[in-house]
């Protein structure tokens, strides 16, 4: 009887070959029709990015610049198209943000440029692109990643916006800040809110959900930090805008109380203070300004130091400020006038105290992967069986 000897498979070099006419099928199955929740894509975070890169590597290997250009253009246009179609779905946007970043990191890691090869294994160095320098395409991908990031932030804000005032100020459990309810009622707030209302718990649950989705998609930790900083800013800005324009809040003692509470919060955990303080700064200034106004620090000094942080609407708050007892001073008319004059030439913002639409500039620090391309298994459910392993 003949003995069946299994033939040793030729070493897989971590490249994927496809026929030119299959390019549209490739981006359709891998980008346009891919479900971010599918089991297949969650096995290896960034899998679509790795597959695209392995296809690109083969086009580079056969020295076909037209195929390289065409694949990059199709992939980028497909990502834009899916984001146009499902741009209000956090999961989709997060998924393509992390995959676009991973693709960008791959283009750097395997560029052959020494500055990006420091953490590569010898095998990864062997897998570097051999014919083309794609530095310009990296720039385009980076621009795309910025657009996706901004879309992610907008998407997140749309979900958070309706929760913030209700959760932070009306059903909150931090005592002594909002003054909405009589003291006796405060502790009765349960974490299960009535229909249409939100609690601090529901905001935290929502933030947790954003975080775990991003982790599941393999989003770079440095990028997650930037998203969190932005979330923190939005929640702080919307809360503060609402809070400080409440009549009962516009008093010296309340302003001091906020300033003091925030100081305590940041002191509670010194490790986060340095990082958080930068983000908190805009939140701290309005009460500080009000307090400063009341203790007669010249308005020019305050404005010159901090003009970046507050809009002309600060004047509204200063005008609302009312002494609650005989020991409190009224904000001097001169102080308000000076501030008004100094801010007159500023472009009028529709925002109140803080610009809730502000988006911090984003960066995508290089984050190489230790994953070896030749070990990647492609699940059948991705429907890319027409790709040949090379």
């Amino acid at each position: 009887h003949p003995v069946n000897i299994p033939r040793r498979e030729k070493d897989f070099q971590g490249m994927l070959e496809y026929k030119k006419e299959d390019e549209l099928k490739l981006v359709k199955n891998l980008i346009l029709e891919l479900k971010p929740r599918g089991v297949a894509v969650n096995l290896i975070p960034g899998l679509p990015a790795y597959i695209l890169f392995m296809c690109l590597r083969h086009a580079d290997y056969i020295n076909d610049d037209q195929k390289v250009r065409s694949l990059l253009t199709s992939a980028i246009n497909s990502i834009k198209k899916i984001l146009k179609k499902r741009g209000d779905d956090f999961e989709t946007v997060s998924f393509w943000l992390s995959n676009t970043c991973r693709f960008l990191h791959c283009l750097k890691q395997y560029s052959g440029d020494e500055q990006f090869m420091k953490h590569n294994t010898p095998k990864q160095n062997d897998h570097c692109l051999s014919n083309f320098d794609l530095a310009e395409y990296r720039q385009v991908l980076s621009d795309l990643a910025i657009q996706i990031y901004q879309q992610l932030i907008k998407c997140m804000e749309n979900i958070l916006q309706p929760m913030i005032v209700s959760g932070m100020l009306e059903h909150e459990t931090i005592q002594g800040v909002s003054g909405v309810k009589p003291t006796g009622l405060r502790k009765r707030t349960s974490s299960i809110a009535d229909e249409g209302t939100y609690t601090l718990d529901s905001i935290i649950r929502q933030l947790n959900s954003f975080h775990s989705i991003m982790c599941q998609h393999g989003t770079d930790p440095e990028l997650i930090k930037q998203v969190v900083k932005q979330q923190f800013y939005v929640i702080g800005a919307v809360t503060l805008n609402n809070l400080l324009l409440r009549k009962d809040m516009c008093s010296w003692s309340k302003g001091m109380q906020i300033r003091y509470s925030v100081t305590l919060e940041t002191r509670a955990d010194l490790r986060i203070t340095a990082r958080v303080c930068g983000a908190l700064k805009p939140v701290l200034w309005p009460p500080e300004l009000i307090v400063a106004g009341l203790v007669f620090i010249p308005a020019e000094v305050i404005i010159a130091k901090n003009h970046f942080f507050f809009s002309v609407q600060i004047v509204k708050v200063l005008n609302l400020y009312t002494p609650v007892n005989a020991f409190e001073e009224r904000v001097s008319v001169l102080f308000i006038r000076t501030i008004q004059t100094r801010l007159r030439d500023r472009k009028e913002s529709p925002q109140l105290l803080m610009d809730t639409k502000l988006i911090y500039p984003v960066t995508f620090p290089f984050n190489p992967s230790s994953l070896a391309l030749e070990t990647i298994q492609i699940p059948g459910s991705l429907n890319v069986g027409f790709l040949t392993r090379v």
Partner: peptide, 30 residues
């Protein structure tokens, strides 16, 4: 150390220019 390989720089269009090379024309047209 071997000399680093010379790679050909591929000129890239901008994002907006890329969009004009729409690969999905058939689907998008009414």
């Amino acid at each position: 150390r071997p000399p680093s390989r010379i790679r050909v720089l591929l000129k890239a269009p901008t994002l907006a220019e890329m969009e004009e090379m729409n690969i999905f024309e058939d689907e998008d047209s009414p």
